[in-house]
C-alpha cells in the first residue's frame, strides 16, 4: 500500500517537475522556435479553450471515433473469419503481412487522389490503417486458443456459435485488446497526418499552418493538445480494457503472486 502511494506520487510528481523545469528554463526565452511555456499556454487557451474546439478539435475527434470504431469491428470480424476458415487463411495471410508492411501514412496520397480531401478521405484512411493491427492480433489470438479449451468444446459438444462467441472470442480477448490499442495509436497518427495534407481544418491542419506561418507558440500549443488528447484516449482505452478483461488482469496477478 505504501509502495503504491509512493508510485502515485512519483507518477504525478515527475511530469509536474518536468513541466516546472520547462516553465522556468523557457521563461525568458527569445528564441522564436522555443517560446516561453507561459506564452504557449496563453495561446493554448486562446486557440483551443474553446474558440476552435468546435470547429477544429471536434471534427478531428469525430473522424477518429468513427474511423476507429469501424476499424475495430471490421478488424475483429475479418480476423475471426480468416482465422477460422482455413481456406481464407491460406489465401490472405501472406498478403496481409505485405499490406501491413506499408506505412499507413503512405496511403493518404492515394486516398486523396481517389476520394479527395473531404472528411470521407480522413475517415477512410483511419479505417484502412487501424484495421490491420486489430485484425492481425485477432487472427493470432484465435489461433493461439489453447488446445485444452478446444477439447473441452468438443467433449461437451458446444455448438459452433457457442465455440466462437463464448470460448474463442473471450480467449482471444487479451490479444485482441493489445491489437486494438495499437490500432488506436495508429488511428491517431493517421488522423493528424490526414489533416496535414491539403486540409484547412482540424488539429493537424492548424498545427501545420502555425508552423508554416512562424507562429511557434501556436504550433507548440497544437502539439500540447495532441499530447493531451493521445493521453486521454489511452486512459479511456485502459479503463475500458481493465473492465472488460478484469478476469485476465486478475488471473495474471494471481499467477505472479503464486
Amino acid at each position: 500500500m505504501k509502495r503504491r502511494a509512493l508510485n502515485t506520487v512519483l507518477g504525478v510528481g515527475a511530469p509536474v517537475a518536468v513541466i516546472a523545469a520547462w516553465w522556468i528554463v523557457s521563461a525568458g526565452s527569445t528564441n522564436a522556435f522555443f517560446p516561453p511555456l507561459a506564452t504557449i499556454m496563453e495561446r493554448f487557451q486562446a486557440l483551443w479553450l474553446f474558440d476552435r474546439f468546435a470547429s477544429d478539435v471536434l471534427p478531428s475527434l469525430r473522424n477518429l471515433g468513427i474511423g476507429y470504431a469501424i476499424a475495430v469491428v471490421v478488424g475483429v470480424v475479418l480476423g475471426f473469419v480468416i482465422a477460422t476458415v482455413p481456406v481464407l487463411r491460406a489465401m490472405f495471410e501472406p498478403a496481409l503481412h505485405f499490406i501491413r508492411g506499408i506505412p499507413p501514412v503512405a496511403l493518404i496520397p492515394i486516398l486523396i487522389t481517389l476520394i479527395g480531401f473531404g472528411q470521407e478521405m480522413r475517415v477512410t484512411s483511419i479505417v484502412l490503417a487501424a484495421t490491420f493491427p486489430t485484425m492481425i492480433s485477432t487472427i493470432d489470438g484465435i489461433r493461439a486458443v489453447d488446445t485444452g479449451l478446444r477439447d473441452v468444446c468438443s467433449v461437451y459438444r458446444l455448438r459452433k456459435h457457442e465455440r466462437l462467441l463464448r470460448v474463442y472470442l473471450p480467449a482471444a480477448g487479451p490479444q485482441i485488446a493489445a491489437g486494438m490499442q495499437v490500432s488506436l495509436q495508429i488511428g491517431f497518427i493517421v488522423m493528424i497526418a490526414s489533416e496535414m495534407l491539403g486540409s484547412s481544418q482540424g488539429i493537424g491542419a492548424m498545427t501545420l499552418l502555425a508552423q508554416q506561418s512562424f507562429l511557434a507558440a501556436d504550433m507548440w500549443a497544437g502539439i500540447l493538445l495532441l499530447g493531451f488528447l493521445g493521453f486521454a484516449a489511452n486512459i479511456l482505452f485502459e479503463a475500458a480494457r481493465s473492465r472488460v478483461l478484469a478476469w485476465y488482469i486478475g488471473s495474471k496477478r494471481q499467477e505472479r503472486a503464486a
Binding site: 489453447d146 488446445t147 485444452g148 479449451l149 477439447d151 473441452v152 467433449v155 461437451y156 470460448v167 473471450p170 480467449a171 480477448g173 478476469w247 485476465y248 488471473s251
Partner: peptide, 14 residues
C-alpha cells in the same frame, strides 16, 4: 463427459 488432467487449461478463466 471428460475431466482433463490439466485443470488450468480446461476451465474458462473468464
Amino acid at each position: 463427459a471428460l475431466v482433463f488432467q490439466d485443470y488450468s487449461r480446461s476451465l474458462m478463466p473468464w
